[in-house]
């Protein structure tokens, strides 16, 4: 579904990524973890076409650009549009009649527990509700590949757990491929089928990747008590520390 091969990209003369390869299959949940500044978000933006690459190829075989959805850390809802209008916007931009777009938007709002809140402006919604509206806005377009850049980082623990479980249920139900950028190793293991670890930047690359053998459908609370969870977490944490400490040592030596 998505194959990013040997991606390199830079900001001006500053190289960020140097040869990162990631792949996502249909219905597969893939996470990208790594130290700050390793280019996780940049890689995601490159897949979406928001960031130019300097080398490598991005193949989205069988996928049209319109079948890729992205969810940023900020919900970025239009403040002058109601929740319903925000959700319907993407559908309208795809050429659907306004009435039809509103109908679809209503269905998604209801599915995400926001029935009756369609007439509210973003400022009248809580952080969790706004995040759900942003999610409905993307899912309403029926993406086959969903890119998420720490979408729930700003939410409090309880709301975050609930919204994340909603996403997992939807993604499993619709067989959507997901590429998630996160700093949270526990979240990465609990959600994913594969976790990629990026090395420290600049010139970051994929240092390692891990298959997660926790079965689906997944309950995020129960996933954490699966026998494979703790050893994986320890391994990932140790590898991440090595990646960070190793670069520090190199930095000192240089």
């Amino acid at each position: 579904m998505l194959r990013a091969n040997n991606i390199a990209l830079s900001y001006g003369n500053e190289p960020v990524l140097a040869g990162a390869s990631v792949s996502v299959e249909a219905g597969q949940f893939v996470s990208l973890v790594g130290p700050s500044g390793s280019g996780k978000s940049s890689l995601l933006r490159a897949v979406m076409g928001l960031q130019k690459t300097t080398a490598g190829t991005i193949e989205t075989s069988g996928l049209k650009q319109t079948e890729i959805g992205i969810l940023f850390q900020d919900d970025a809802l239009l403040p002058w549009r109601t929740a319903l209008e925000n959700v319907a916007l993407g559908v309208r931009l795809r050429g659907e009649a306004t009435r039809c777009a509103f109908k679809q938007a209503e269905v998604w709002l209801e599915r995400l527990g926001l029935a009756g809140l369609g007439g509210r402006y973003p400022r009248e919604l809580s952080g969790g509700q706004r995040k759900r509206v942003a999610l409905a806005q993307v899912l309403c377009l029926r993406p086959r590949l969903l890119l998420m850049d720490e979408p729930f980082a700003s939410l409090d623990a309880i709301v975050r757990a609930r919204v994340t479980q909603d996403v997992v249920d939807l993604v499993e139900g619709e067989r959507i491929g997901v590429l998630l950028v996160t700093h949270d190793l526990e979240e990465a293991i609990a959600l994913s089928d594969v976790v990629y670890l990026l090395s420290n930047g600049p010139r970051a690359h994929i240092a390692s990747h891990y298959s997660i053998p926790i079965p689906r459908p997944r309950n995020l609370v129960k996933a954490r008590s699966h026998p494979a969870f703790a050893p994986l977490y320890e391994r990932l944490w140790s590898d991440l520390s090595e990646v960070v400490d190793g670069s520090r040592r190199l930095g000192v030596a240089a």
Binding site: M48, L78, L89, L141
Partner: peptide
Amino acid sequence: RLVERVRTLGGGRWTVLREVYLP
């Protein structure tokens, strides 16, 4: 971020102008 949001939803230059800049 709003400009980027509208673009990723499929909006072109005129849509960005109408949906973001104008309001």
